[in-house]
Structure formats: structure tokens, C-alpha cells
Design a protein around this nucleic acid. Structure first.
Lengths: 117, 117
DNA sequence: ATGCATGGTCTCCATTAGGTAACTATGTTT
DNA sequence: AAACATAGTTACCTAATGGAGACCATGCAT
């Protein structure tokens, strides 16, 4: 196993199209229900959300708490181990801010403002 | 464009299977030739390496310098703009160290030592 | 009786990712 | 004359990703 491979396999756990976004939501909002995550991340499908959450759960990044009631209620929280990811998520967030600024410098302010948050 | 979408599209630029590994190499070694990158990342195919480098170049993360000689010589360097990614790469690296420790705690030392670097 | 709400699962399908191997150019070495 | 070296490109094929939409359970409100 090369150094790169170690690096790579450690990254596998949270990189990908959706995992950083899900983690960012949980870091920001704390405990969230499935439907809250869906609303917060409108473009993700149920299937993907479930799948990504299961993988994060498997890797001890998120915690799943089911309440036995009808209609069902499930809450997701970050585990203690997930705290190790905070610096990465923060750095990613900073990067995305910087990058957006970079883009608006390149393509002009009006366009950047046109993209509402 | 939602906040998540901004975040996501900023991430696009450097997440993926290979980009963090390539960037890590360039941060560590400075200027590298194509063949050096290939040797440093043995599992990547020429096609992928070329493709990822082109994308990074397109996004102003790496710089490509061709020397007109035979056999050809091409050098890749990080751009100034790429410095903004350093904190992310560092945080990722820290995370991967932490994660490896986590794994060896879970599965025992002898196994972790068996995986040579 | 009907419909709604939640947190899913399942199947089908299209797109994308990514690997292999052959091919290119051409000056230098054997 | 043939082979080597570098930095690719191209065609082809398979595997993985990921979206849409139907379906499920069931207690409560209408």
C-alpha cells in the first residue's frame, strides 16, 4: 500500500459529490431529520441521500437514531469521530468562498450577483 | 444557485479519485514532469493522468510548460492560485493520518504494520 | 373509506468513469 | 535498420454512478 493509496483510501470516506455537502449541513445544523436534509439539499435524490448516509454511518461519521413511531422519525447526528473532519470541511468551505470570489473577478460582479444564494 | 450548489461546484475542481493525489504530489515535490507523476502515482493510467491534468490546467490550478524537444519534455507546476488549496490538502493529509490511526486502533497494530508504505 | 406524512426500498435506465492496448512523432542510440 | 524514450491520443469496452418513479408500512385526520 503506497502513501498515495493510504491518502486515497482515507479520502474515499468523505469525498464524492454529496458527502461533503451532507457533512457540511450536519456540522452547521447539528441533529437533522431525513426530510430536513432533503430540503436542505434539494438536488439529491432519496436514494442517494439514504445511500450516502448509510456509508457515512458505516464509517462511523454519522449516527442514525430511529424513533419507533408512525410516521417514522429518524435523526442523524455527527459522531465524535467526525470532529476530525471539521478542519477539512472548514478548509473546503474557505476554499469555496475564495473560489467564488475568483470567479466573480474573472467574469464580473453582475453575473456573480445574478446567482442568488 | 443554492449555497450547497456553490459549495459543490467549488469542490468539483479538486475532488475526485485522482486530483487530490496529483495535487498532493505537486505540493510536495514542486515542479514535476509527466513521467515523474506517473511513477509517483503508479495506479493511474496515462489517459487519466492527462485528463486530470488538463482539467486542473483549465481551472488555473496547474501550469503546463512544454519544451519543444525530442523526446518531449513537459513540466507541471502549481499556479499561484493553487496556493488557496494548500489548507485543504493539508487538512486532508492530517485527516488521512488520523484515520489510519483510527483503523489500527480498531483492527490492531500488526495488521497496520503489515500494510507497508 | 380515503388520503396524508415519513423514511425509506426497488427496479429500470442512461450517463459517466475509467481501464487496456494500439498508435503517433522524431531525434538519438545501438 | 531497428529500438528506445517521452508525452501523449484514440478507439473500444466494461463497471460504476446516479436519476426517476413506483411501491411499502401504518397511525391519524377528514
Amino acid at each position: 500500500m503506497s502513501m498515495d493509496c493510504k491518502f486515497e483510501s482515507a479520502l474515499e470516506i468523505f469525498v464524492g459529490k454529496w458527502k461533503p455537502v451532507i457533512l457540511f449541513q450536519l456540522f452547521t445544523n447539528g441533529t437533522m431529520r431525513f426530510s430536513q436534509l432533503q430540503k436542505a439539499i434539494p438536488d439529491i435524490s432519496k436514494k442517494m441521500l439514504t445511500q450516502q448516509l448509510r456509508e457515512l454511518e458505516y464509517h462511523d461519521i454519522v449516527n442514525r437514531k430511529m424513533y419507533l413511531q408512525v410516521p417514522p422519525k429518524v435523526e442523524y447526528t455527527l459522531t465524535e469521530y467526525a470532529n476530525n473532519l471539521e478542519p477539512v470541511l472548514n478548509a473546503m468551505w474557505e476554499w469555496s468562498e475564495t473560489h467564488l470570489k475568483h470567479l466573480s473577478e474573472l467574469y464580473g460582479e453582475e453575473r456573480a450577483q445574478g446567482d442568488r444564494t
